[in-house]
Design a protein around this nucleic acid. Structure first.
Lengths: 220, 220
DNA sequence: ACCTGAACACCGTTCAAGT
DNA sequence: ACCTGAACACCGTTCAAGT
């Protein structure tokens, strides 16, 4: 009984579409992206999405196929964003670092989408534009071939991992459990334990690893 | 109509339990772990699990509470495993590297569980035993306090990332799309592109980054 | 061309009932 | 103490039907 509370859902901003009331595929993508980024992938149900858009569940299927295709569309949007990054800096090393940092901040803004892309095996495609740009810089230093490939993958691994770790760190911190809370209270190195309690320094960890990689690239 | 094909499901190996037919909480955990590791978390439905065990869905709830508690239990089992790692090697640096490598291989064996632990913000707890052991080695080198914390986190980030990337790499490779397939076919550095086509060298990428980190630790 | 409700098979979970 | 079926609210998806 009482199937749904379907009562003129106020209608969500139709945005660019000129005709009223009806919904475009782009509207669906946008609304879906909003839900995913704010509440995670699991929160994206077709019924919730249709509620947000003020249409029947089934009309979403007309626009985007099904849930799987919808998620694919979201990932595609993220990948398109990756092509806008441009390196800055005077030396190749600086430009590589600049690319890595831009990549990191871009991914941090869309963390749930990054996870989604990873689950769907689109991580390689996600990194492609940056890899191409980085390859150019590496060639400038004289690093090509297998060595360059290794350096590229090293950088790639480093960036994505610090994004993932930062998310985990932020969430643990927000619900109170810090890394250091797990450590034995009588550990001799109290400054170490204290440092692990500082939740905000994942940027530093990132720079630390980036520096390590760049040094190794410059002195093989 | 035809609710389920509930026909004497042959009964799964009851293992250690002495009484026949009935099921222990440990049986449930084991069966669930098998499903998760073989087919991923999404494949773990309560009904499939109960089918595997040859009991009614509802009896699972008696043993483990609900699905969420079940997943928690699986993660706990993974964390317990982490305490068994022991460093080997003559120098502190070698012992640190040894710990990182053991951690990596252990996590690679339980990749789905690692993802699960990460989603549930248990990554810090997962790394705790290794971190403690590594801290001892770092102190031997003379690295303590904030510097040691940074090194620990750097190592932690590196290990988990290479595990995650290796999974992504393996899956992309298995369904045919290699990193390098995305690159422009006319890219000047053909050896680089060829290197990116070799799917098996994630171990090398891991060692590369590990080496970079250890060098940086030794020369601050 | 676009939207709709009804209907399907599938979830997780609760509960009263059995032994 | 353990297991069961019935029943609930919730999914994704299909389809015939509307305009």
């Amino acid at each position: 009984m009482a199937a749904t509370t379907r009562v003129a859902t106020g209608r969500v901003a139709t945005g660019t579409s000129s005709r009223t009331s009806s919904v475009t595929a782009d509207d669906v993508l946008r609304a879906a992206g909003r839900i995913v980024e704010r509440h995670g992938v699991d929160a994206l149900t077709m019924r919730r999405l249709s509620d947000d858009l003020g249409v029947a569940v089934t009309s979403i299927y007309w626009h985007v196929g099904n849930r799987d295709a919808l998620l694919d569309g979201l990932v595609d949007r993220l990948l398109a964003r990756m092509e806008t990054l441009v390196p800055s800096g005077d030396t190749p090393t600086e430009r590589i670092a600049s690319l890595a940092r831009q990549l990191r901040t871009t991914l941090l803004e869309r963390q749930h989408l990054v996870g989604l892309a990873h689950e769907r095996d689109r991580t390689p495609a996600m990194f492609l534009p940056v890899q191409l740009a980085m390859a150019t810089e590496l060639a400038e230093i004289g690093l090509t071939g297998a060595d360059a490939a290794l350096a590229l993958r090293g950088l790639q691994v480093h960036v994505i991992s610090s994004v993932l770790m930062e998310r985990a760190g932020a969430r643990s911190a927000s619900h109170g459990t810090l890394d250091a809370d797990l450590w034995p209270i009588d550990h001799p190195d109290r400054e170490l334990v204290a440092s692990l309690n500082d939740p905000a320094d994942y940027a530093t960890v990132f720079e630390y690893g980036l520096d390590a990689l760049l040094r190794r690239i410059l002195t093989p």
